[in-house]
Simulated scan of single mutants.
Amino acid sequence: MVNSSVLRDNTTLTTTISSRLLQFIQWTFIPSIIIGFIFFLCFITLVFNIFLKNPTLRENARYILFVFLLINDTLYLFLGFYLMLASLNFLRIPAPLCYILYTFSSGAFKVTPCNLAAMAVEQYIAICHPLRHVELCTPQRANVVFTMICSFVMFPYVAEFCVMASSMTNILNLYIVCQKETLVVNPIQNIIRSISLILFFIMIGVVIIFTYVKVMLVATKMCAESSSASKAGRTVMIHAFQILLCTSPLLTTFTQAYTSKWPDFLPTVHFFVFTCLPRFLNPIIYGIRDELLRHYIKKSLSGYIC
């Protein structure tokens, strides 16, 4: 009996220590997210300042799309961070507000890869149709393309909301913990989500493969490793890598299956690794890669230092 009691006490103590350790690790990730987010905001503020002060950038569709990318990623991080904290603290909010936040957050997640694909198309036009680049890639067309991307991404959520509203449920009158699973009241919603996600990946994949193949064919014909076509091909591949980074949150479905022992610990880790890090790296990757933007960033930083 004594040995049994000691064993139970040791087990309880071990469980308590493990729980406290997980909570400590979880709440150390949150300051890391905040610090990373501050640096991210400082960087995009610098880029916005450069963009607004230089007409060369403001008249270039490539940099307009890049600025849209930063704005969208900022929105996604703000909404994602709020939803994560609300979920961790079991904060209940009205279901319609939850659906609006979920729609904008999930929509912003999909807008970034589409925006990167549009930037790859701009590279394709610049290399394969240089004489028409000025005509096709105007600031006005860049604004139209981004608007079309947002409309395309939001359409499935409108359809999903219509399914929710038409279902025999009172969820729209409830206060709920805001999670995407909580909003599913009809199996058709999961079908809409799956189909839209599959079409989304097919479209992005086709655009990236098409632009890369076309650009590299031009680079091969030019027979110059240092040609602009070769650089454009590498840029398209960087966009493909950025797309993989930005879609990494989809891996949480698989990681949750193998780490189900720590359900309270996972949301913070997943948000930091799969949501924050890819968005933090996006502007840095492009800012370092692009020669003109890198030149302006160095010039601005040297001005601040002096």
Score class of each variant (00 low, 15 high):
residue 190 N to V: 12
residue 199 L to F: 14
residue 142 A to G: 06
residue 142 A to V: 02
residue 137 C to T: 01
residue 142 A to R: 01
residue 189 Q to F: 07
residue 188 I to R: 03
residue 182 T to G: 01
residue 200 F to V: 06
residue 143 N to V: 07
residue 162 C to V: 13
residue 108 A to K: 00
residue 134 V to G: 07
residue 201 F to W: 11
residue 159 A to D: 08
residue 200 F to A: 08
residue 141 R to Q: 09
residue 156 P to L: 02
residue 196 S to G: 10
residue 183 L to F: 04
residue 121 V to S: 02
residue 127 I to Y: 01
residue 180 K to W: 11
residue 178 C to L: 08
residue 137 C to V: 04
residue 195 I to F: 12
residue 151 S to Q: 14
residue 169 T to N: 10
residue 172 L to F: 10
residue 138 T to E: 03
residue 134 V to T: 12
residue 144 V to K: 10
residue 124 Y to T: 01
residue 138 T to P: 02
residue 190 N to P: 08
residue 147 T to Y: 11
residue 198 I to F: 13
residue 110 K to M: 07
residue 170 N to K: 11
residue 131 L to I: 12
residue 139 P to G: 05
residue 167 S to C: 13
residue 108 A to N: 02
residue 163 V to N: 06
residue 195 I to S: 13
residue 127 I to P: 00
residue 129 H to N: 12
residue 172 L to K: 00
residue 124 Y to N: 06
residue 120 A to T: 04
residue 146 F to S: 03
residue 169 T to S: 11
residue 104 F to V: 06
residue 190 N to I: 12
residue 118 A to M: 04
residue 182 T to I: 07
residue 109 F to H: 05
residue 118 A to I: 05
residue 187 P to L: 09
residue 185 V to F: 02
residue 180 K to I: 13
residue 183 L to K: 03
residue 196 S to F: 07
residue 182 T to H: 08
residue 142 A to I: 07
residue 116 L to W: 00
residue 184 V to E: 01
residue 183 L to C: 06
residue 137 C to G: 01
residue 151 S to M: 15
residue 136 L to S: 08
residue 127 I to E: 03
residue 154 M to S: 10
residue 147 T to L: 15
residue 144 V to T: 09
residue 109 F to K: 04
residue 198 I to A: 15
residue 180 K to E: 11
residue 111 V to L: 05
residue 148 M to K: 14
residue 105 S to G: 14
residue 200 F to I: 05
residue 149 I to H: 02
residue 116 L to Q: 01
residue 132 R to Q: 14
residue 149 I to E: 00
residue 116 L to R: 00
residue 114 C to D: 03
residue 131 L to Q: 15
residue 133 H to I: 03
residue 191 I to T: 13
residue 198 I to N: 13
residue 133 H to L: 06
residue 176 I to E: 04
residue 140 Q to T: 11
residue 128 C to Y: 05
residue 185 V to H: 02
residue 134 V to H: 10
residue 110 K to I: 05
residue 105 S to I: 04
residue 168 M to L: 15
residue 111 V to Y: 00
residue 174 L to D: 15
residue 163 V to Q: 04
residue 197 L to H: 08
residue 166 S to K: 12
residue 173 N to M: 10
residue 106 S to D: 03
residue 107 G to W: 05
residue 110 K to E: 01
residue 115 N to H: 07
residue 199 L to M: 15
residue 196 S to C: 13
residue 167 S to Q: 10
residue 153 V to C: 04
residue 133 H to P: 02
residue 138 T to D: 06
residue 168 M to I: 12
residue 176 I to G: 05
residue 115 N to Y: 03
residue 194 S to M: 13
residue 197 L to Q: 11
residue 150 C to Q: 06
residue 191 I to W: 14
residue 145 V to D: 00
residue 184 V to T: 08
residue 122 E to I: 05
residue 176 I to L: 12
residue 169 T to F: 09
residue 115 N to K: 04
residue 156 P to D: 00
residue 118 A to P: 02
residue 139 P to E: 10
residue 155 F to I: 10
residue 158 V to F: 15
residue 169 T to M: 09
residue 187 P to F: 04
residue 117 A to C: 11
residue 110 K to Y: 02
residue 133 H to F: 07
